[in-house]
């Protein structure tokens, strides 16, 4: 039995050695690496229809959330506000924040708008938006999120943010929220 288990561990460790893809390591980046190649249909807090590339041409901080989540999502918004406040004026003018919902069924424009007002988000630079229901898994897969709906309603999900350059190429993908208020301004500083 012990031998069998060792064999299993061996096979398993081979799977886990799958190559890790590297994020935006300066060489040979093209539009081909841009996440804007994913065609999805967003509706924002004003009911406006948008593509994922709504902020193409600007630096974008992108993340996933859902409005009825009262634990991580306020933390996410607070962390992003802190991050935003830590940017210098010039950088801030060129940076946008796009939050995409896991929960298009409930996150209607009215719900998104209410959340934006509640958190006093600057809607000239922030957008909250819902994709079509069958597009959620694509954007989650692209941004490296793991999530599942839970029977009592809502979702369990990992949290993190992705920083995109003006072409939509990821410059930084951070799991967890604790360090984004330092990491993102730092990264952006190098871009200007």
């Amino acid at each position: 039995m012990k031998k069998l288990f060792q064999k299993i561990l061996l096979v398993l460790s081979l799977f886990l050695l799958l190559e890790k893809e590297s994020i935006a390591s300066s060489e040979k980046l093209s539009e081909d690496d841009s996440i804007y190649g994913l065609s999805i249909h967003l509706t924002d807090q004003d009911g406006k229809k948008l593509g994922l590339d709504v902020y193409k041409g600007q630096y974008v901080v992108m993340s996933l959330f859902y409005a009825s989540c009262n634990y991580t999502c306020p933390i996410l918004i607070d962390a992003l506000k802190k991050m935003d406040a830590a940017l210098d004026e010039k950088t801030r003018l060129k940076t946008r924040i796009l939050l995409i919902s896991f929960d298009p069924e409930n996150d209607t424009p009215a719900v998104l708008k209410k959340l934006a007002l509640q958190h006093k988000l600057d809607l000239s630079r922030w957008k909250l938006a819902s994709p079509e229901k069958n597009e959620v898994r694509d954007i989650a897969a692209l941004l490296g999120f793991t999530y599942r709906s839970i029977p009592e309603g809502g979702f369990n999900h990992t949290s993190g943010v992705t920083l995109l350059n003006p072409l939509g190429i990821p410059l930084l993908q951070e799991e967890g929220l604790a360090r984004i208020a330092e990491l993102i301004p730092e990264k952006l500083k190098k871009e200007f």
Partner: peptide, 13 residues
């Protein structure tokens, strides 16, 4: 991409 095992966002942010 749905197996969270115990990395539940509500437990451990």
């Amino acid at each position: 991409n749905s197996s969270l095992i115990s990395s539940d966002n509500r437990e451990n942010a």
